[in-house]
Amino acid sequence: MTEHERKIKAEQRERFDFAVIAGWIPPGERVLDLGCGDGRLLRYLKETRDVSGYGVEIDHDSILGCLRNGVDVIQMNIDSGLSGFEDRSFNHVIISQALQTMRATEHILCEMLRVAEEAVVSFPNFAYRNNRTAIASGRMPVSEDLPYDWFDTPNVRFFTIADFEELCARLGIEIRERLAFDELGRPVADDPNLNGSLAFYRLGRRA
């Protein structure tokens, strides 16, 4: 695959991820995107769902990227919580492939469902078949959804679909919808913890 093809593929894949998330965001909502990177997802949601809202990001270059994407961004460290954000001040809070880069996992999940009615979370499934194969052959996995070498990965929490769902149960978080996809972006129904490379969740507080 040439560099150009790789780039096209990455863009297609990103569009696909965005579309999955957008499918859960009704038009005109107020959203908060945690770990929003350069704001591309929020920009997409503004363009396709007419949402309003903010990104939250810690990285300096990403702040600049958000500005260039016309996205309102607040520079702060989410690991220290969302204090300052008021209860239920957003319809949806999103954390797109960023939860695994943050340390205070439990705290962030609880905070997300304090500031918004629902949370949308996506993350790479560490127990995906190919990742298991890599580990079994003695190497850390590198894939479409875990594209980093072990020594330069921003990820600090490595977890699986099964792990995540167990934590949600313990925290009183209701899983309202789950979608899993393999590396080619095909939806996975059978044994997602084995066959899903990327997982998407729509979460709420258990009534």
Partner: peptide, 21 residues
Amino acid sequence: SREIVFALLHNRLRVVYAEID
């Protein structure tokens, strides 16, 4: 500065906040 930012958020005003090293 964050006090200002969160007061603006309360009022659903548009704001960009940068904390510069």
